[in-house]
Structure formats: C-alpha cells, structure tokens
Design a protein around this nucleic acid. Structure first.
Lengths: 205, 205
DNA sequence: TGTACATCAGTGAACGCGCGTTCACTGATGTAC
DNA sequence: TGTACATCAGTGAACGCGCGTTCACTGATGTAC
C-alpha cells in the first residue's frame, strides 16, 4: 500500500494524511480512526504522535491541505475561466463542484468533519483565502449590475456558495436512496443560471 | 430530567427518542451514544433493546419523527402561506429554515447522521412525502411561467432545496468561526427572491 | 375483593472490542573528528 | 575511511475507558376466575 524503507518510513506525515483522507472518503469522518490510519500507513498508532498532536490535529491537517487545493483550483478557474467576468464566475462555480467530486475526502474533512476553521491560524487563513476567491469573482461580476440594485458581494457569493454546497450535500453523494433527479453538474449550472438571470446578469434568452 | 414512575418507565420509547435528539443537538450525530441516551432517560442501556433494534434504529426513529414534523410544517406553511401560489411558495421556503432552527436535533438526524432514507419503508415514505410538499409548491408556482421556458418542477424544487440546505449548513450553525455575514433568514429570503426573479416570477422592482 | 398466574419492561453483570494516548525503549540515521 | 555519539523516528506493551450488545434474572402490571 505504502512503500516503507525499513525502520524509518521516509514520509510518514504525508502518508498519514493520505490514509486519513482515504478513510474519511470511504467511511465518513466518523468512521475514521487514528489507529486505522496508522495501520494503513504501515505504522504503530503511537508513531502518529511524532507528527501530530492527536486525532483532531490530523484531520485539521487534511482539511488544511484541502483548502489549499480548493483555493488554487478556484483561483485557476477564475483566472482562466474566460474573457468575461461572467464566464470567469461561472467557471469558478463549476470548479467548486469539480473539487467536491475529485477530492471527496478533503471536502468532507473541510465541511463535514466538524473541525473548526479556527483550529489553527493557518487553517483560518487558508480557508479565508478560499472564501475570498469566490467573493472576488462575485464582486467583479456584480459591477455589471447597476449600483442601486446591486446586492452586497458578500451576499451574492454566500448565495452561490450555499447553492453549491447544498447541491453537493444533497445530490452529489452516492448515499443510497437519495439519488438525484438530475446530474449535480446540471443542477448547479442551471441553478446558477437562473440566479444570475435574476440579477440581470444574463439575458432571458 | 425525565419523570419516572418506579420500576416501569411509562413511556420509555419516546423518552429515548427525545434523549437521542437532545444529545445529537448538543454533540452532533457522532457524539450521541446509545448508552448515554439510556442514561439520560434514567434507564440501563440494555433497556433500549426492548424498544429498538439498536443504536441505528433509534436514530432512524428520531429522523422519522423529524420528517413527520417537517412534512407537516411545510404543508401547513404552503396551505396557509397566502392567497397566491407565489406567497405560498415563499412561506414554504421560510418554513424550511424555521424547521431547521426549531428542531436542530431532528434536522441533524435527518440530514447529517448518515442514516439512509431506506432504513425502513416508513422512513422512505415519509421522507418522500416531505420532498413532495416542496415539489408541489414548485409545480404550482411554475405554472405561472410560460411552458416553453418552464424548468421541470423537480429541478426547480431541487434548486430551492439545495439553496435552503446550503444556507442551513453553512450559515445557520453556530459553529465557531463560520459566522454568517448575514442572518440566514435574510440570506435565504433574498436568495430565493433573486432566483424567482430569474424565472420571471417576480418583477424586477 | 382476592388470588394465581402470565406477560411485560426493566435490571445488572458480563463480554469482547477498539479506541486514543503514554511511556520507556531501540533501531536507524546523520555528523564531528 | 572509521569510529563515537547525538538525534531522530519508530516500536510494542500497557492503560483506562466507554461502547454496543447478550443474557439470565426479577419486579411490576394486568387479567381470569
């Protein structure tokens, strides 16, 4: 599973994070245990304490790495998203869902593990940065709305964040029995489309 | 805490459900244990097995009662919501958030406990009924949209459900550090407002 | 109203389990000379 | 290149704990006559 180099592992810290992520992905944040993560990394539970303060600290590190990827992915989508502010914004929304799909373990660690974003200053900073990307995209786009009917960008981005998160939680999990009537990607795309139309940012074609 | 009548409890089954709910509310679905629920009800853990198959079955019962209240509340809001289909729809949305606020234990049991809606036929039925209320409200309202630009009602209601759920999860929990920039009620109200405007159901006043 | 008895809803002790965490330890690695 | 030694990153045994679950039991309740 993980290649060991004799007595010393070589990169145990990261191996533990990855074990934690795969366990979280497989069994949810509840199902993950420190002992099992250690076992999966080919190491004694006690070894974990060389690298982390304990179980919660390990999850926090997983979440932190998630926020880093998340911020990067959103930033990239925004920058490369298209010539217009509108296209860039839409690309950012798509990136949200793509991230949740591609890094489910990270997503769960970030949003469903019950970890506080204030666990550490670094975690708080990186999560604020991620939030900032979406807020920036919303702010830029909302400049195309006449000022008198422009919602605060923080509200704009909160709406989109909430819609995205709701789609992920309700329709992008393969929890048995809650199958979606539509593909989550379509749901989010159309939902954001209607919303942007409501703001006057899209024509009613 | 719970009044006992000697050796026999009187209404242990419901007392256990309520203990479970208050524990879930206080510590999340993870923090809840069968033993602690039994203790809170003033009873031995073994007594739980007179009334439930085990831990999961107890959570499922809590979720089921949640769906029952949920369906009732939404139905009531829809029926009494106002003279117009629009007003009724908006009342239903507000009822969603009100339910999440008033019955946080139930809400968590329903949506965050990892319980499958297929745990039992009754649970599947009542959850489908709850979903049906919102879908009906959406279907009625969407009849005011010209057919050629009318989204499928299931998609319409999925959007609203996702937005509502996202608002609850991200902004209506007092998880430290994730404080909302706006009151969740406002966020949902304005979000749905913009969305309905996008569908042409609200004037752009 | 009283008694015998069946049924029901609890007890309490016991179980095996896996958890997170600690501790003194030891094998591996790196470095100074 | 070789040796002595400090440092580092693991081990493995042990801990106390609370969990879910089982079992034979017993006290309380309800009912037939």
């Amino acid at each position: 599973m993980v290649k060991k180099r004799g007595y010393h592992h070589g990169n145990l810290r990261q191996a533990l994070v990855e074990a934690a992520l795969s366990l979280i992905e497989a069994k949810g944040p509840t199902g993950f245990t420190l002992s099992e993560a250690a076992k999966q990394a080919g190491v004694t539970p006690a070894a974990v304490y060389r690298h982390f303060d304990g179980r919660e600290d390990l999850i926090a590190e997983a979440a932190k790495q998630g926020y880093e990827i998340f911020a990067d992915v959103m930033e990239y989508a925004y920058n490369k998203g298209g010539p217009s502010d509108l296209a860039a914004f839409e690309a950012t929304g798509r990136a949200y869902l793509a991230f949740a799909r591609k890094y489910p373990g990270h997503y769960i660690a970030m949003f469903e593990s019950g970890i506080s974003v204030n666990h550490s200053p670094e975690l708080a900073a990186i999560s604020a940065k991620a939030r900032g990307v979406l807020e920036k995209a919303a702010a830029r786009l909302s400049e195309h709305i006449p000022p008198d009917r422009r919602p605060p960008p923080a509200m704009f981005s909160a709406h989109v964040w909430a819609l995205s998160h709701g789609v992920v939680e309700l329709f992008a999990r393969n929890s048995p029995g809650t199958q979606s009537p539509f593909p989550p990607e379509d749901l989010l795309e159309t939902g954001i489309g209607v919303y942007l139309r409501g703001l006057g940012l899209l024509d009613r074609d």
